[in-house]
Structure formats: structure tokens, C-alpha cells
Nucleic acid binder design. Structure first.
Length: 875
DNA sequence: TCTTTCACG
DNA sequence: ACGTACGTGAAAGAT
């Protein structure tokens, strides 16, 4: 029989802690949920770690307790419980019941007393006892059998108070904690103590005398001092305070230990509570099976022939695809609705219908869609050129709040309170069980999506107008989707043979390096395993440990760089890593993505994903093809134009983020630097180091460049010190000097954080928003992160606005000029085109012109360009 | 599925 | 006293 383990939780204290530690979350019905959420996450963790056999959550009952008989002002002057917290207690009780945990409260006693009484009793029955609270007072209950867990940093960390721990921390026994409070008092409980005595003095006195009573007995031996006077004058108060602080361990509790047996949650009840509270992440993480919500019945028809009268002037249409890989997956069918009648056409039927084809291509026929870029790309494959898209649910949701957007219609709809559409996962299944369902189920699913789009269109447009984001959505993101879809469908040609040849060479080098590493290590091991590599470097070879990760030794490149002088193996490992990365990600990875039919790769640009408004690129990611190191840069030799005698043409914005910063901050110094066409890093070095342009050496410029990066990222001395490998203090000096030279930037950074605190969000030049709920958090880390984000997002996001606008203008200009040149890729501050060589002269003229004039700033935008027979040469 | 590492702007 | 630079995606190993 294993030992019983009793877990006693201080319900009130933990709820308070969680409430103040977390931002005010609300569920769909507007109930605040942060305290319950925090309590739940903490409970989940403790249950997993401790595996208790018995549990109880104690609550305070009512306002008055026996302590008020001693001192009527006990807990007086306390702030009223915020209503946002009060409303959560019923849910907390429901939650605890669903977990199958005993709840208990007792008239006239506080939760502490219940816990103290049960802990004492349990210890006599030889149980292990763990108490969990946010209130340090409870540490007085610690004994060899009773450990008191006190939550720290809100609720994320736990301090385990054993008698030994308390001894080390204060030099006191757990029971002396009571004496300490008797002397120093406790403002939060309105316990007076002795005025002028704080923690330091109290601990000192108790180390000397042992207890409050012993201290007063020995009072005559103390030499006269202000302190002694205060002690003498407040003897009664000190003794009363000690009494108030003492947890009562003989409360008349009427529960048996059998009632406290814990055997796990009632899953069904717990799911219900979590759903009611809207704890999506917990529901997903748990392995509970969630029952489908009931949906209202829905009328739709499956048609095998498209009649012209089905197709109205304004419709919501949905192209149902097998999965998210819309360039390759099966297209299953098309649903369309006018809000009255909903029809589903299997895809093979749809493509054969000239009526439908003409309607899809007719720009005067208005279409509302869930994800127009995916649909357009999927239709492009059949030679259907979608036109007339007027609403895009995915993009509208993303602009409304970039943090929420999933890519499933059900998820997006649910965020707006619409539930009559199923999640893809529940229609198709997941993992190995994933399969396309029968036509009826498929048709219903697609039809419901079309209807959801129809229903949500007015709501979302209204929301966007309210926030003055309609223009951004309608005139930037929506037309951009069509352009991106063309870019993706066009694809970029990749020379398979070139990559294979490089792969062969890399392979030869990797084999040699691997052998050298084994020889230097004295054994063979998996160099790609950070764990095994850590053992070799730090245990076997005894190299100094510079940094640790949460799972072991760090073997990241910056760490290895520092170890280079220590051992010859390091250089080989770094080289192995570098070449291995090229081989696995860029040679093998890219080869897998080349389409057989056209020798091209067709990436997907995610337009509704990033928090800042940037695009991202997947399958393959063409926004991180190597360039910084020559070995990697050669990968770009495999990217070629799709036609003979064509070229690749690349144009990039110079210092766009710093120019945006100059524009937004209106810092005179920074503005001048750009207006004068100066090298901005050199200029920064001149101002920070107080030297002339000629005196700026490469080191100074390097440091200045790092500071400029830091400014854009939301500067911190720690980050800069890491980057430049200098001390934090030196980094702080750099930053101070920078802000002294660029006071406008300093003001901007301060203002933007204030704005974010006031509004709860930050915006870009085109009014893109990012909400920053953590900006008011009491958690230092969360708040600091939000503050840096507040500084960075307007910069990164506005740069994204600018290049997106340039893409739209460029598309129009290429059409106007009747050019064959095609835009293929966007890499954040760079556009890559392919074009016949004859168009080069015109490209050199119009690309910089269009890009530089995309959006007018108070400083000029500058564009550099290059071209060549491969992407490598277009540098 | 999560963690670590490393490629890009 | 707190402990990270901003934004991404892919591969490999560990779990």
C-alpha cells in the first residue's frame, strides 16, 4: 500500500492570485474567466506532478470570523473583491466539482484554518500533505510531513516551503513565521504588529529571543533605543497580532478523510465546464473526445447540371478542397448560395459547365468567398480565371484581428458567434483516419460554409468600417490575394540537375567531416542530436558549459563559436551543421517540391497568418533561401527563369524599416540622414561615438548597425549585449547615447507604449492593428514582451503595408505597359520578377519608380535592383 | 507532438 | 527582481 498523499488548496487565495496575474479574459457570453483559467492550469500541472490520492479545496465562508472577536478591524480597509472576480466564483465551484474534488467552507473560519486543521490531522495519520496557496502565512504549517507550496510570479511558478527551506530563507522555524508576523504585522490583513518593525528587524529579534513572548520577557536586558520604546509601547498589539496571524488547527471540521478521496475528473462534466468557459486550448490539449455541437438543420441541393437561373448577381461561393495544399490536392466541389437557395456541384461537373465557368470569370458577378486565394489557385489549375471577388472571410477576419484567425471556416465563424458549420477536422477526420466523406456529407459541409460566408459578410464589413480598416481590407488585402494567387500559380522554375549536383558535392564533404568529428570525439555518434553532441562536448571532452537549455546543454552556433579555441572538433561541427542544413532543407527539401509537369516550385504565401501583416511562405518556404554565406547562396543558382532568354530581376527596398521609423518618429536627425542619402549606420556611429564620418571604423559601424536593429526590435540592453557580445552595462550606455542623439526616436518609443496601454492595440501606416493584451500585465516578462512588440509592430507592419501596396501598383503598371514580365516572389522587402531580356530597360525604370512611390513618407524610399540568368546572379 | 537548431527579412 | 532582442518555416531528434 503506497502512502496517502493529501493535497489541500486555498481556493480564495489561488483565485485572487490567478485573477491579478492574468489579463482579463472573457468567454463568448462575456463572463470573465481569467481567474478560473489560471486556477485550472495550475491545478492541471499540480495534478500531473503530484498525483494526489486525496484532495480538498478550502474556501473562506462569509465576512466575519472568530478573529473579529479579537480585533474588529481584522482584514479591515480591504479593497472590495472586484466584480470581475466575484462573478467567477460560481464557475470555480462548478469546475472543482467537475474535477471530483471535495470543496469545503466553514462559518466563522477562514480557509487557512480548515487547511491547518486537516493538515495536522492528516500528519498524525501518516499521510504526506501538500498545501497550495498564494498566501505566505501558510508556511507556518510546514513540518517534515507537510510541505507548503506558495505560488510565485502570479501562478506560473511554485516555491516549495519545507522547514529546511524556511530555515535557509529566514533562519526561522515555520512556527516562528507567526512571531514574525506578530512583530511586523500584515498590511493586507490589517494586522498592526509593532510600528517601525519590518521583516529585517523581526527576523533579527526572533533569532535572538526565539518568540514574541520570550522577547518581552527579556525586554529589561535590551539597551535603551527608539526600537525598544516602540516594542514596549506596543506589547499588547504585538501579542494580539501574533494571535491573529496564528492559523487555528482545531477547527470543528466535519469531513472524513474518505470523503477526500480523489480518483480523477468526471470527463463529461469537465468538458461541459471548459466549453462553457471557452477554454479552447485546454480542450484541444486534453485527450477528451468532444461531442459535436448540434447544428440547425440546413437545406441544400446537390446538382448534376448547372442551370443559368441558379447563378445570381451576388452570391457566396465556396470551393471545397481536399486539404490545404491547394496547388496539388483534389478539388471536390463548389457550393453557392444567395441566402435563399444553396446548391452544391461536384467539381468534375462544375468544370464541364460553360455556364458556371463564364459566371466565375465574369467580374460583374459579385462573389463572397471564404479564402479567395486558395479558391482562385485551385480554379487556375483548370484554366478558370476567377473574377469579381468582393468579400473574403479569411482576410476580413485577419484584418479585424490578426491574432484570432485560423484558416477553417468553422473557427472563423465561431469567433463571430456563428456555429452552424462543421470543423474540417470533424468532417474529414484527422491523422491516419483522415478521408474524404461521401458526397452528401461533403455537399452539406461545403454548402454550410458558403452559407456561413453569406451570413458573416455584412457583420465583418461592419466591424471593419467601425475600426476604419475597410479600406485596408478592401483595397489592399483583397486585390493582393488575386495577385498572390497568380504568383503562386505561375511558380518559379528550379533546375533539378543543379541541385542534385550540389547535393552530391555536399554529401562528399559531409562524409569527410563526419569521419573527422568521430575521430576527434573518439567515438561515432549522431552529430545532429543536440543531446548526444552535448554529452560528447561537455561530459566526454570536458568543454566549458556556456549556456543551458531547459532540456540540457545548449549546442547552438553562438555557443560553439565561443568554444572554437577550446577544441578542433568545434569547427568541424559548425561546418557539418552548416552543410547539413543546406543538404536537408534546401537540396533535399526543395527537390521534393519541384512539380514534375513544369519543373517549378509553387509556394503558398500565407496572407492571414503573421501578427504584423507580413506574408509568410510555405511548401517550400521561398523567403528563407540562403544568401548570407557563399556556400548557401549558391542554392540560388538553381532558381532560373521559366523561358529561354528571360532573366530574373530582383528589386529591394534599402533600409525600409529605419525609413519607416524616421517617418513615424519624425526624429530630425534620422530624417535628415535619409534625406541627405547618408549611410544610416555610419551616421548612427558618428552620433553615438561623437566622431566624424571619416573616423567611423568598421567596428563602430558594426556596433551602430546592431543598435539600429535593436531599435527596430524594441530595444533592451540585454538583447543588444547578447548580439554584440558585450556587457549589459556597455549595451545600456550605447542605448543611452543613441537616444541622446535621436530624441525623436526616444519620444516615439515612449509614446507608442503609452498608446498601446491606452488603446490596447498598435497600428501601422495603413491602419493595420495588433492587439496587445499583455501590455498591462503585472507579469514583467509578458509586459516587457508586449512593450517591445508595441515598438516593433508599427515598424515591421508599416513596411509590410508599403510593399503590399507596391505589389498592387506594380501589377497594374505591368498590365498598363502590356509587359510579359511577371512578379514571382516577395521576400518582405524585395520583389522578384522574371521577364524577357527585351523588357529589362523598362523594368529598370518602372520597378524602382513604382516601389519608391507606393506610399509617400516624409523621407524618400530607395530601391536597389539587380538581374541575371539565375537568382544567384540577380544580386 | 514538442524542442532545438538554423535559414531568411 | 524580473530574464529576451522583432517576424517567420523546416528538419531532425527526443518524447
Amino acid at each position: 500500500m503506497t502512502k496517502e498523499k493529501l493535497l489541500l488548496l486555498d481556493g480564495n487565495s489561488l483565485a485572487y492570485r490567478a485573477f491579478f496575474a492574468l489579463p482579463l479574459l472573457t468567454n463568448d457570453s462575456g463572463i470573465h474567466t481569467n481567474a478560473v483559467y489560471g486556477f485550472t492550469t495550475m491545478l492541471q500541472r499540480i495534478l500531473e506532478e503530484e498525483q494526489p490520492t486525496k484532495m480538498l479545496v478550502a474556501f473562506d465562508a462569509g465576512k466575519t470570523t472568530f478573529r473579529h472577536d479579537t480585533f474588529t478591524e481584522y482584514k479591515g480597509g480591504r479593497q472590495k473583491t472586484p466584480p470581475e472576480l466575484s462573478e467567477q466564483f460560481p464557475y470555480l465551484r462548478k469546475l472543482i466539482d467537475a474535477y471530483g474534488i471535495k470543496r469545503y467552507e466553514l462559518e466563522m473560519y477562514e480557509a487557512d484554518d480548515i487547511i491547518g486543521t486537516l493538515a495536522k490531522e492528516a500528519a498524525t495519520q501518516d499521510m504526506d500533505v501538500i498545501i497550495v496557496s498564494g498566501d505566505r502565512d501558510l508556511t507556518q504549517l510546514a513540518t517534515e510531513q507537510v510541505t507548503v507550496y506558495i505560488t510565485k510570479k502570479g501562478i506560473t511558478e511554485i516555491e516549495k516551503n519545507t522547514p529546511a527551506f524556511i530555515e535557509e530563507k529566514y533562519g526561522l522555524t515555520p512556527l516562528q513565521i507567526i512571531d514574525m508576523k506578530g512583530l511586523m504585522g500584515d498590511a493586507s490583513d490589517n494586522i498592526p504588529g509593532v510600528p517601525g518593525v519590518g521583516e529585517k528587524t523581526a527576523v533579527k529579534l526572533l533569532k535572538e529571543h526565539g518568540s514574541v513572548e520570550a522577547l518581552y520577557e527579556a525586554m529589561d536586558t535590551l539597551k535603551a533605543s527608539k526600537m525598544k520604546e516602540k516594542l514596549v509601547a506596543n506589547e499588547g498589539q504585538a501579542l494580539m497580532s501574533k494571535k491573529l496571524a496564528t492559523i487555528f488547527t482545531d477547527a470543528p471540521i466535519e469531513v472524513t478523510f474518505t470523503e477526500l478521496n480523489y480518483s480523477g475528473p468526471n470527463e463529461e462534466a469537465l468538458i461541459d465546464v471548459w466549453q462553457e468557459l471557452g477554454f479552447k486550448s485546454l480542450l484541444e490539449k486534453s485527450d477528451f473526445t468532444i461531442e459535436e455541437e448540434e447544428r440547425a438543420p440546413f437545406d441544400f441541393d446537390i446538382v448534376q447540371e448547372v442551370q443559368p437561373e441558379f447563378l445570381k448577381d451576388v452570391m457566396a461561393i465556396h470551393v471545397e478542397l481536399e486539404d490545404e495544399h491547394y496547388h496539388t490536392c483534389r478539388q471536390l466541389g463548389i457550393a453557392f448560395t444567395d441566402g435563399t437557395a444553396t446548391k452544391y456541384v461536384p467539381f468534375d461537373v462544375a468544370v464541364k459547365s460553360d455556364i458556371l465557368r463564364r459566371w466565375l470569370e465574369d467580374a460583374t458577378k459579385v462573389k463572397y468567398m471564404a479564402d479567395s486565394k486558395a479558391s482562385q489557385a485551385a480554379l487556375n489549375r483548370e484554366g478558370i480565371h476567377l473574377a469579381g471577388v468582393d468579400f473574403d472571410l479569411l482576410l476580413a477576419s485577419y484584418i479585424n484581428n490578426p491574432a484570432l484567425s485560423g484558416d477553417d471556416v468553422a473557427t472563423l465563424a465561431k469567433e463571430l458567434g456563428y456555429r452552424d458549420v462543421q470543423a474540417n477536422e470533424s468532417v474529414y477526420g484527422k491523422g491516419a483516419k483522415r478521408a474524404v466523406p461521401d458526397t452528401d456529407a461533403l455537399a452539406e459541409h461545403a454548402s454550410r460554409k458558403a452559407f456561413a460566408v453569406w451570413t458573416l459578410q455584412p457583420k465583418l464589413e461592419e466591424l471593419l468600417r467601425e475600426n476604419e480598416q475597410y479600406d485596408l481590407y478592401k483595397n489592399l488585402e483583397l486585390p493582393l490575394a488575386a495577385i498572390l494567387s497568380e504568383m503562386e500559380s505561375e511558380g518559379i522554375k528550379v533546375n533539378r540537375a543543379t541541385l542534385e549536383e550540389m547535393g552530391q558535392e555536399l554529401n562528399d564533404k559531409l562524409v569527410i567531416l563526419e569521419q573527422a568529428i568521430y575521430a576527434e570525439a573518439g567515438e561515432a555518434f549522431n552529430v545532429n542530436s543536440p543531446k548526444q553532441l552535448g554529452v560528447i562536448l561537455f561530459d566526454k571532452l570536458g568543454l566549458p558549459v556556456i549556456k543551458k537549455t531547459k532540456t540540457g546543454y545548449s549546442t547552438a552556433a553562438d555557443v560553439l563559436e565561443k568554444l572554437k579555441p577550446e577544441h578542433a572538433i568545434i569547427e568541424h561541427i559548425l561546418m557539418y551543421r552548416q552543410l547539413g542544413k543546406l543538404q536537408s532543407t534546401y537540396i533535399e527539401g526543395l527537390l521534393k517540391e519541384i512539380h514534375e509537369q513544369d519543373s517549378k516550385v509553387h509556394t503558398r504565401f500565407q496572407q492571414a497568418l503573421t501578427a504584423t501583416g507580413r506574408l509568410s511562405s510555405t511548401d517550400p518556404n521561398l523567403q528563407n533561401i540562403p544568401i548570407r554565406l557563399e556556400e548557401g547562396r549558391k542554392i540560388r543558382q538553381a532558381f532560373v527563369p521559366s523561358q529561354k532568354d528571360w532573366i530574373l530581376f530582383s528589386a529591394d527596398y534599402s533600409q525600409i524599416e529605419l525609413r519607416v521609423l524616421a517617418h513615424m518618429s519624425e526624429d530630425p536627425n534620422l530624417v535628415e540622414a535619409f534625406r541627405e542619402g547618408m549611410d544610416v549606420h555610419t551616421r548612427t556611429a558618428m552620433d553615438v561615438f561623437h566622431v566624424s564620418a571619416e573616423e567611423v571604423d568598421s567596428n563602430m559601424r558594426r556596433a551602430a548597425k546592431a543598435v539600429n536593429f535593436g531599435i527596430v526590435y524594441g530595444i533592451s540592453d540585454y538583447g543588444l549585449s547578447q548580439n554584440l557580445d558585450i556587457t549589459r552595462k556597455e549595451a545600456a550606455t550605447f542605448i543611452d547615447k543613441y537616444f541622446a542623439s535621436f530624441p525623436g526616436v526616444k519620444r516615439y518609443m515612449d509614446d507608442i507604449v503609452q498608446d498601446a496601454k491606452f488603446n490596447g492595440f498598435v497600428t501601422t501606416i495603413l491602419n493595420r492593428r495588433r492587439y496587445l493584451p499583455d501590455i498591462t500585465s503585472s507579469n514583467f516578462n509578458l509586459r516587457s514582451f508586449a512593450e517591445r512588440t508595441a515598438m516593433n509592430t508599427p515598424i515591421q507592419g508599416s513596411a509590410a503595408d508599403i510593399i503590399k501596396k507596391a505589389m498592387i501598383d506594380m501589377d497594374a503598371r505591368l498590365k498598363k505597359e502590356n509587359m510579359q514580365a511577371k512578379l514571382l516572389l516577395q521576400v518582405h522587402d524585395e520583389l522578384i520578377f522574371e521577364a524577357p531580356r527585351e523588357e529589362l530597360a523598362l523594368l529598370e525604370k518602372i520597378v524602382p519608380e513604382v516601389m519608391e512611390n507606393a506610399i509617400e513618407l516624409t523621407v524618400p524610399l530607395k530601391v536597389d535592383f539587380n538581374y541575371g540568368a539565375t537568382w544567384y546572379e540577380a544580386k
